[in-house]
Design a protein around this nucleic acid. Sequence first.
DNA 1: ATCCTTCCCTAACAAGTGTTTGGTAGGTTA
DNA 2: TAACCTACCAAACACTTGTTAGGGAAGGAT
Lengths: 204, 204
Amino acid sequence: MPTNKKKTQVTASPERRRELLATAAEVFAAHGYNATTVRKIADEAGLLAGSLYYHFDSKESMLDEILSTFLDELWEGYDAVLAAGLGPRETIEALVTESFREIDRHRAAVAIYQKESKHLVALPRFQYLADSQQKFEKAWLGTLERGVAAHAFRADLDIRLTYRFVRDTVWVAASWYRPGGGHSPEEIARQYLSMVLDGIAVRT
Amino acid sequence: MPTNKKKTQVTASPERRRELLATAAEVFAAHGYNATTVRKIADEAGLLAGSLYYHFDSKESMLDEILSTFLDELWEGYDAVLAAGLGPRETIEALVTESFREIDRHRAAVAIYQKESKHLVALPRFQYLADSQQKFEKAWLGTLERGVAAHAFRADLDIRLTYRFVRDTVWVAASWYRPGGGHSPEEIARQYLSMVLDGIAVRT
DNA sequence: ATCCTTCCCTAACAAGTGTTTGGTAGGTTA
DNA sequence: TAACCTACCAAACACTTGTTAGGGAAGGAT
């Protein structure tokens, strides 16, 4: 959650920044960060490569700003859920629903995060990714443990495995989810929760 | 399943090829295909960049060979399962178990497939990726539908959403799975199936 | 009219990219 | 010994990469 200070040596309007970051995020998500040239971003945005450096001081800083603003918003939602004092099952439900809402709002950023965070975590500049991941694990794993203790969740499952499955399946949805594509985030969350909580098999 | 013909203008020993492909796959999986330079692969393998071109005719052809051999082996296993004439639930169980076995055997290739297949599908050279995905969807979706018809699986879930969830959750495991890390593929499959089929909530 | 700020362009840079060409050490075969 | 093959190296190639420097057009403020 404590992300980076955004020092840009420029007077620029924040509106234009957001526009450019949005198209950059789109391209990053579509082709991957490394495969994305700064010229391709500029092309998509309708200006020349060098002109991007009026708004940002490097390609990496664009990525940085995309990811950090996404994580800031994500934790705003998560913290609200965690502070609500819900029971374990209700907390899981709220976290999942909130996650799908974030995917809806930051589809590109989530896709980038999914693909690149594994390498970026090593870089000092992206330290906040490691922090976020740790906080993330603590929240989810803690809730699952609380649920097992309260006999809301089964005790015979490996809790770390369960955590990984739940976590990954939520976020990979960003790779196929398209806003306005028939399913609302809440609808997807409902279906997903129904499957994870109750299973897909018919109860006998 | 019908993959590429492997024309390499060289008399080379297939043993050395497999060695080099294995290290290339490792590097691709760790840093991503585009971020991986051919010099880094050569470095890791203990030779110079140009020497790789004695064994392969391009960086892309290495990727091609890695993915196609993986998919060939995968479909060998899948086809055997699908031809066994099992019931829907047993088919799902067998497919999931087989998938985790493939992740165990081809961890690097699966990780690469996960990250890169989305872009590669567009390239004519990797047409077989699209074919495989279609066949994959047909097998899984068909089995799920069969299960719903036979009252083995719940009828109130969106079957396409369920398919995506199940599919993704299986394969993302490649991002954290490490062979010889406490959990065998069969153990992971068992836990995963228990969760997906019966849910994590306590039955009331 | 002058100045200043904002936003972009032109043109180039140094480094790194995948790939090719020609050569060569060392073992195998004739 | 001579010819040959395998597997590599050394050095360069053409191109792409992220980034920078200097300039200029448009418009508001003075």
